[in-house]
Simulated assay, not measured.
Amino acid sequence: MLLGLLASACTTGDLGRPRPTVWSQVIAPEAGFRAATARGEAASYFRITDDEEQLRDRAWRFIMPAHERSYFQREVSNLASYRILPVAAQSSAISDYFGGLTAGAYASQASRYSRLAEDTNADRLLIGPFRANAMRVVAADRVRMRALEGSALVPAEKQDPALARVIENEGLILWVCERVGFRIESYRYALANLVVEMPSREAIRAERSIMALEAEAAPLCKLPLIGTFGGEAKKPVVYKG
């Protein structure tokens, strides 16, 4: 049944995320809430705001594997996005993208370099909107926490879910920062191995695209967060293939 539900979510909606279905809107969120709670993770039953929903939609691209041919990894990451699986279940092998990039038939070596540059540029263009969205969510969470602490009208039973929502939001931002770092390392691995296997002048364009992505990603990992995970986003880690 689970496989069938996953298959039904393959149609693409806004920002690349699957279109809303009963699975994505009802079953998966409830299953994720229960699974996260069972693992001892913060989970809130509060309805999400418009900005929080958009943040999750924008995060989805970066959480997923960079290449669509990474079929198994995509399913794992999709389940992790709903919190049904823990984040640690995702692959940390930077060779995954290169495997997807070089699988199948291509007209020429230039097409592989072109696809690498296109994927890198697409990421770069989407980081700015995600960062702006994240800043709005963090600002709203600061208001949430001030209202929670300063109003006697808010019942005590809303304190834990309010804090849990702040933790969820901040955790998602940190997760995206980490996966963007993973993508950059994956792109660099792919470029190095393409040059070894199929040297081409197109490598210059791909290299410049990766450098531009790195420059755009740097401010994302320096956002001043509230501090539920220790404040500023951590510097992306370096992965091993």
Rank of each mutant, 00 (worst) to 15 (best):
F72Q: 11
D141M: 02
E157Y: 07
A190W: 00
M64V: 09
R112Y: 03
P65D: 00
Q54N: 13
L223S: 03
A192Y: 01
E197H: 03
E68L: 14
A93C: 13
R146K: 09
L213Q: 02
G227Y: 02
Y189A: 04
R61E: 10
A103N: 13
L125E: 07
F182H: 10
L223T: 06
A233S: 11
G128T: 14
D14V: 12
R142I: 04
V22C: 08
P29R: 02
D96L: 14
E202D: 13
L223V: 09
T21W: 02
T21A: 00
P224I: 05
E197L: 13
L220D: 05
W23N: 05
H67Y: 06
I184N: 02
E157P: 00
G16L: 07
V22R: 10
D119Y: 05
E68H: 15
S8E: 11
S186A: 15
D141S: 04
E149N: 10
R61T: 12
A7C: 08
V154M: 09
I204D: 09
I63V: 15
R136T: 06
F130C: 03
E149H: 10
V87L: 12
L148T: 02
L153F: 12
P18G: 11
L3W: 10
G32F: 09
G32W: 08
L5Q: 08
W23G: 10
A105T: 15
N133F: 02
P18E: 07
T21E: 00
T11A: 14
I167Y: 08
E170Y: 08
R19A: 14
V138E: 12
P199A: 14
A89R: 12
E197K: 09
V238Q: 11
V137K: 01
F98D: 03
A206H: 04
G241K: 05
K234C: 01
E214G: 03
Q54C: 08
A42M: 07
L148Y: 04
A43F: 09
P65V: 09
M135N: 11
S114D: 13
A36I: 02
G150K: 03
V195A: 15
T21G: 06
F72Y: 15
V180R: 07
S186E: 08
A139L: 05
S44E: 04
D51S: 15
T37K: 14
L116C: 12
A162D: 11
W175Q: 13
Y97M: 06
G230A: 04
L5V: 00
G99E: 13
G171D: 06
R131S: 00
G16Q: 06
G99K: 12
N193F: 02
K235R: 14
S114I: 03
E216K: 09
R142S: 02
L5P: 02
M211R: 15
P129R: 01
R58W: 11
L5S: 05
A110C: 00
V22L: 12
V154K: 06
L116Q: 05
L174E: 07
I84T: 06
F62N: 10
A93H: 12
V137C: 06
A43W: 06
S24E: 01
S200G: 09
E157C: 07
L2F: 11
V22M: 02
R144L: 12
M211E: 15
M135C: 06
A152G: 07
T49I: 09
L116W: 01
C221L: 02
L15P: 01
A110R: 14
A156Q: 10
C221S: 14
M64D: 00
R83A: 10
L223P: 01
A152F: 07
M135H: 03
